[in-house]
Design a protein around this nucleic acid. Sequence first.
DNA 1: ATAGAATGTAAACGCTGTTAACTAAGTTTA
DNA 2: TAAACTTAGTTAACAGCGTTTACATTCTAT
Lengths: 227, 227
Amino acid sequence: MTQPTRRQIIREETTQEILDTARAQMAERGAAALSLRAIAREMGMTAPAIYRYFTDRDALVTALIGQAYESLRQALEEAHQQNLQEGARKQLLAVGMAYREWGVSHPAEYALIFGTPIPNYHAPEETTVPLARSALGVLINVIQEGLQSGELRPLEEYAALSPGLREEQGDIDPQVHLALALWGHVHGLTSLELYNHLQSLVEDPAELFRLELLSKVEFLFSKDSKQ
Amino acid sequence: MTQPTRRQIIREETTQEILDTARAQMAERGAAALSLRAIAREMGMTAPAIYRYFTDRDALVTALIGQAYESLRQALEEAHQQNLQEGARKQLLAVGMAYREWGVSHPAEYALIFGTPIPNYHAPEETTVPLARSALGVLINVIQEGLQSGELRPLEEYAALSPGLREEQGDIDPQVHLALALWGHVHGLTSLELYNHLQSLVEDPAELFRLELLSKVEFLFSKDSKQ
DNA sequence: ATAGAATGTAAACGCTGTTAACTAAGTTTA
DNA sequence: TAAACTTAGTTAACAGCGTTTACATTCTAT
């Protein structure tokens, strides 16, 4: 409501500095090397001081996960916005490529979100589920536009799924499940590449990714019978 | 060459007991909770004793990864063998389902292989790459049989990929890239499910997985032009 | 000016992986 | 059989970690 007091400003700055330092160290030494003491050391503080800003190591990690999801969402949204005039097919391709590129350029944050790099940390679902949903929302929006414009055909197989969701939210099933399928596809190849499982098997993972994404998107847009 | 001495036998037994205890604790408390001291404690030993059997915590982890890969490979191979008379299409479906089921029933080992649950551990590629390759080999074999029997069509789009590999190994490209594409697809949905990213978005992840796998396999088997 | 809240510190606890020095037992050789 | 050697375990210690407690300082508001 009222403007923040002097103290609240400094507190907010220190909080952000902690998060920034943590993110920098993650980028340097990997998400698993995250350490409250190391963060405090680099900031010229002692470790217990951090507890004035985050109740836990887990709380800090949760905040980092929040920022990472938001960064991913922005990257996807940017790809979407840059192809607004292009039609759903190109938009899906752009968003898919942006997903991989964000992972490649943010490997530690990717691991933080999609792996389990922090020992004994369990993400609180009440915060991570909405975050994941909002990043996925970009994909869902693109698909919804494609469905409305008639570019995309709704796959009738998906109708059988998730009746609980349909009861709650009406008929959002098709685009959610199309989005999940595409997400799974894109995430699989990205994480295989990031965790070095494609090494020495394929020369150019980016090209494999592009071909697979292309093939998947073309499949979604094919108007013929499924076979 | 000669039969193992008495000492070599009990050494081998202790080594296996360490691995078994580690695997049990991973299953209970998660891969990230792996601890040399806890393993030793449960075995009635002290922690430094383990160093007589593994030079490092990392060496133990690498051994565990080896066992996990082998367990995964066996599960896939079993699915393959049980559908030998069924044709490539059903075999691919069976192997894909077996992949997910192994992940669901071995979440900690799945994280160990495909995530980064151990802080500051980096898998030595010279050991993990052949292991991953041998698990992938099951998929490759099924696809190769499908190609040879004519059930599967080679995707010409993949021909341009990884030319360097072809020089070394002959013409193994098509089945390798088909396998990688399928692996990426299957792995993506499996890891999303395992790390709770599908929660409250889809009611029955197994059914979503089955539909997606079916769709992908049908696509691979379609004889028409790509569009 | 003074009371209170906010923000930092130092010290300590229990946990971790790891190393060094030592002991006890088993195995091999003279 | 006795001596020499190898192997497998111990205890003690070190550095690092997250975390808690008790205390000091400083900024803010009455």
